[in-house]
């Protein structure tokens, strides 16, 4: 039994260390390139937190999450360019994505597995079509330029450091809230739906309502992520919101392990940093990095296949068996002492 508090302490300690590192980064890291990549990690984390709830926990696959990212980014970018204050643009961006999520969720409720995968994929492609074709709002394939940085009155996140801090502050809050959800009643209900919708209903779970809720939350987080992205880079174009990006997100969750937020975080950090490995691994040759970038899609595809074939628990599964081994060892040595 002693093992349980031990892992809990370990978990908190790890979270504290991670939080400290995250906050310290912009003051220590002078390399703008690295800071930029770390900011993208934060943006992806918000996105993946949402997808993890929907796909990793509730087992509802989405191959169209880039659409919500785009809805948030375009709505907020467009409004901000009209002079709307950033907080309002942000709310509108999140709301637009949430609405999109609701509109997709309602008719998709009956769909499972492949059908849901195809419906979300189709939705993503349709949204991409609109991002490209509604030129008045989105700037068409030329994109939307000159989106002002995030800010509230005189406080403007316009330096790499402040942008980083804004993104990561939001990411940390989102992850904390999500972590709170997944280990409590709603999180259990989502996992129950993943396990067996029929048994979940027999336990009194309103599966329809739950699925709509988690779809909307997931879409809203996608929108939030898109808003931060738009105001971070200042320029958005349809080439960002593609099926490919949706698949990368799915890869991050799958690599992390279904039903694990920590795993999804690890998967996101790993896969986002991978093509820029030279920023953290000193001495990595330019050629190696270029190779990694050139083979990024292959790596994602192979990760999806290999994880499903050989480590269905993903990184989280590894982590769990590692922790289990530690606690067995502890229990054994404790038994030896007595």
């Amino acid at each position: 039994m002693a093992a349980v508090p031990a892992t809990r302490t370990l978990r908190w300690a790890l979270a504290a260390i991670a939080g400290g590192l995250v906050l310290a980064a912009p003051f220590v890291v002078t390399d703008k390139y690295l800071l930029r990549i770390l900011t993208f990690v934060g943006i992806n984390l918000i996105m993946v937190a949402g997808l993890s709830l929907l796909f990793g926990y509730a087992g509802q696959i989405s191959l169209g999450h880039a659409a919500f990212y785009g809805l948030g980014a375009y709505t907020s970018g467009f409004l901000a360019k009209l002079g709307v204050a950033w907080p309002l643009a942000l709310v509108a961006g999140v709301a637009a994505a949430a609405l999109g999520g609701l509109l997709l969720a309602l008719p998709s409720l009956r769909l499972k597995g492949h059908y849901l995968a195809m419906a979300t994929l189709g939705f993503g492609e349709i949204m991409l079509f609109f991002f490209t074709e509604t030129e008045v709002i989105t700037g068409g394939s030329n994109g939307l330029r000159g989106i002002p940085p995030a800010g509230l009155g005189p406080l403007v996140a316009d330096t790499p450091q402040t942008k980083y801090l804004l993104v990561w502050a939001v990411a940390c809050v989102v992850l904390l809230l999500a972590a709170n959800v997944v280990r409590r009643r709603p999180g259990r209900a989502l996992r129950a739906i993943h396990g067996s919708e029929m048994a979940a209903q027999a336990c009194g779970i309103d599966t329809v309502r739950m699925k709509v809720q988690v779809f909307v939350i997931s879409a809203a987080l996608g929108g939030l992520s898109g808003v931060l992205y738009a105001h971070y880079v200042g320029f958005i174009s349809p080439s960002t919101f593609t099926l490919h990006y949706s698949l990368v997100l799915v890869t991050m969750v799958a690599l992390g392990g279904m039903g694990s937020l920590a795993g999804a975080v690890a998967g996101t950090v790993l896969l986002t940093m991978l093509p820029y490995a030279d920023a953290i691994i000193p001495g990595l040759s330019r050629a190696t990095v270029e190779l990694l970038q050139d083979w990024e899609s292959d790596i994602h595809g192979m990760v999806l296949i290999l994880v499903m074939l050989f480590m269905p628990g993903g990184l989280a599964g590894w982590g769990r068996s590692f922790l289990a081994r530690i606690s067995v060892r502890r229990a054994r040595s404790a038994g030896g002492d007595a």
Partner: peptide, 24 residues
């Protein structure tokens, strides 16, 4: 039909869904 990937305790907690309130 159990929730195989959840713990025994969590299975019972899911069974208590209707008697608990906490939302998202």
């Amino acid at each position: 039909v159990l929730f195989d990937d959840m713990t025994v305790l969590e299975n019972v907690l899911v069974g208590m869904h209707v008697r608990t309130r906490a939302g998202f």
